[in-house]
């Protein structure tokens, strides 16, 4: 039954952790890639994620359907994105600052309306058992994959294709690289950016719904430990490429599983440091992959933080 697999438990736990933990990072960063490709940065996705987690859980509980919860979270997220997009289309309004203010507003509203939903138990999202071929319960558990994770993977490929091969992708890239060029082509940059930010918000909302409806699978005020904020950082790390976002999210999730996995095989001292592994790893990769010239390859030129 429960086979003792010794040290193999560590890589296996990291694989499982990567799949379990990465989904919120994946969704938020995919959404933010689209937003940033249009030349805007939305730092407020943490607030959107938390509000998505709350509204998703609340709706799933009230209707009895987890999928309605996901839809509600996406809708709520899109509204937050829309607000961000509209406000930042006003001249002289700073997108980073508005993002921070909306982070506060999103979190505040989520906590405000979320109080009655901390106690109740809402239905979970279903999982697909991809580990049916193995006798090991550890493998089966690691490969219990949520539909949203698979959806995120497909979405990453689809967005990469969209950016590269479609008219929509071209419009987005032109707007992100030069407002003037876009206007010359008869594109209205503000409208594209508003839609791109709304799309980013919707995905962040879905990321939040994953937290509250699947893993860890409950709503409380500590549900997010900064996933929304880190995911925005991962976009820069992933060089604005949706496929890279997928790998960045996986890497971050796997590194996050390292701490508990090491403790479970008896490596117990300094656990705070092993818990910091995802942050250290991301920073190290970031330092190694950057260069003095500061040329952020792949960065949209209209993006305020890369100017």
């Amino acid at each position: 039954m429960n086979g003792d697999i010794g040290l193999w438990a560590v890589p296996l736990a990291m694989l499982g952790g990567a799949i379990r933990v990465s989904t919120p990072f994946l969704f938020v960063s995919l959404g933010e890639v689209i937003t940033e490709r249009s030349g805007r940065i939305n730092l407020g996705l943490e607030g959107t994620l938390v509000f998505g987690a709350m509204s998703g859980y609340a709706l799933a509980f009230l209707t009895g359907s987890a999928w309605i919860g996901v839809l509600a979270a996406a809708l709520a997220g899109a509204i937050f994105g829309l607000v961000h997009g509209l406000l930042c289309s006003l001249p002289r309004v700073n997108d980073i600052a508005i993002g921070i203010a909306l982070m506060l507003l999103g979190t505040g509203l989520a906590f405000f309306f979320g109080k009655p939903f901390i106690q109740p138990v809402a239905p979970d999202l279903p999982a697909i058992n991809l580990g049916w071929w193995s006798d090991l319960p550890q493998v089966q558990a690691a490969l219990r994959v949520n539909v949203l994770f698979l959806l995120g993977f497909v979405l990453a490929l689809a967005l990469a294709w969209m950016l590269r091969r479609t008219r929509m992708g071209l419009i987005l890239r032109v707007v992100g690289d030069s407002s003037d060029a876009a206007r010359a082509l008869g594109i209205r940059p503000a409208r594209v950016r508003i839609l791109a930010t709304a799309f980013g918000g919707a995905l962040a909302g879905v990321g939040g719904a994953y937290l509250s409806l699947f893993y860890p699978g409950s709503w409380n005020e500590g549900i997010s430990s900064g996933q929304g904020l880190i995911a925005v950082a991962l976009v820069i790390f992933a060089r604005w490429s949706p496929v890279n976002c997928f790998f960045a999210a996986l890497l971050f999730g796997a590194a996050g599983a390292l701490g508990p996995a090491l403790q479970s095989v008896g490596v117990t001292s300094g656990y705070y440091l092993s818990y910091a592994a995802p942050f250290v790893l991301t920073l190290v990769v970031l330092i190694l992959s950057s260069s003095k010239s500061g040329a952020l390859t792949g960065a949209p030129r209209e993006l305020s933080i890369t100017k």
């Binding site: 438990a9 499982g16 558990a141 937290l211 409950s218 996050g256 508990p260 996995a261 818990y275």
Partner: peptide
């Protein structure tokens, strides 16, 4: 929350 869930999974993985 997430750390607690991961810790619980690690325990289950350890048998």
């Amino acid at each position: 929350a997430v750390k607690e869930a991961e810790a619980t999974n690690a325990l289950a993985d350890a048998g």
